[in-house]
């Protein structure tokens, strides 16, 4: 396969970036999207051009490090992570536009690499259950109905990739945040801090400069882990409850 790539190049956070066009040849369907970029980088290296910076680590769809806007879709045309997208989803001669996540809360560091520290700070604001090491009760002292555990799990599979923010026309991070609130809020262990959690996480979310959600739903379609829409509703519900309880 021969492809034309249009890639956002930006030397560092302070510089202005621009789209550049590259050709890659001898791409096979077995390659992952990132391996295709490895091939491009090897070519650039030979030519003495700075390779394209992009993030990845596990390359098996679980760490959430990778993430590119591919032809206008977060993580590309399949419901999966960029690292698990394979080139057989493309055709010979295709032109592929590759951009970084666009969100002012995720500033570009270089080329296609962005800073998602805002997600950590949202978790710091309350995305945890306060339990010190060693002070935990015996695991079987609190049974958790299987359904609750399942719903908590479905939400807990979020990998923190940021595709939801990238895809949302408002640049909102409520799918990510709702996933955490649902994960912890569905479990008995998460109840004592439930009100505080949602209030401080939402405040941090807004403080980071993410947009407000108007329930458009692009985030759900982009999410590689298929985090369900419910989590946003759950977040709103919890927020109203917390406000009713006087927060």
């Amino acid at each position: 396969m021969k492809l034309t790539l249009k890639i956002w190049r930006q030397p560092d956070a302070a510089s202005k970036g621009a789209m550049h066009t590259y050709e890659v040849d001898e791409v096979t369907g077995d390659m992952s999207f990132l391996e295709m970029l490895d091939v491009l980088n090897e070519q650039l290296n030979v030519k003495g051009e700075d390779p394209v910076a992009f993030d990845s680590d596990c390359r098996e769809g679980i760490c959430g490090t990778c993430g590119l806007m591919i032809n206008g879709q977060a993580h590309g045309p399949e419901v999966t992570t960029t690292c698990q997208l394979h080139m057989r989803s493309f055709n010979d001669g295709d032109e592929i536009v590759i951009e970084p996540w666009r969100s002012d809360a995720f500033p570009v560091i270089k080329d296609l690499v962005v800073d998602r520290g805002a997600f950590d700070r949202i978790i710091q604001a309350g995305g945890f259950i306060s339990v010190n090491t060693g002070s935990a009760p015996e695991a079987h002292s609190v049974p958790v109905p299987r359904e609750d555990a399942t719903r908590a799990f479905d939400a807990a599979t979020c990998i923190g990739c940021g595709a939801c923010v990238a895809a949302c026309p408002n640049g909102s991070a409520v799918l990510f945040m709702g996933a955490k609130i649902t994960h912890l809020g569905e479990l008995p262990q998460g109840q004592p801090e439930r009100d505080d959690r949602v209030v401080s996480m939402v405040a941090q979310h807004d403080h980071e400069g993410f947009g407000g959600c108007t329930n458009i739903g692009e985030c759900v379609a982009a999410c590689p882990k298929e985090i369900p829409f419910d989590v946003i509703s759950r977040l709103n519900w919890d927020l109203h409850q917390a406000m009713r309880h006087g927060h």
């Binding site: 090491t133 935990a136 695991a139 299987r146 555990a149 262990q189």
Partner: peptide
């Protein structure tokens, strides 16, 4: 296991 359950790790049940 006790510690992780208390933290909200959703183990299979």
């Amino acid at each position: 296991i006790d510690q992780c359950v208390a933290q909200g790790v959703p183990f299979a049940r």
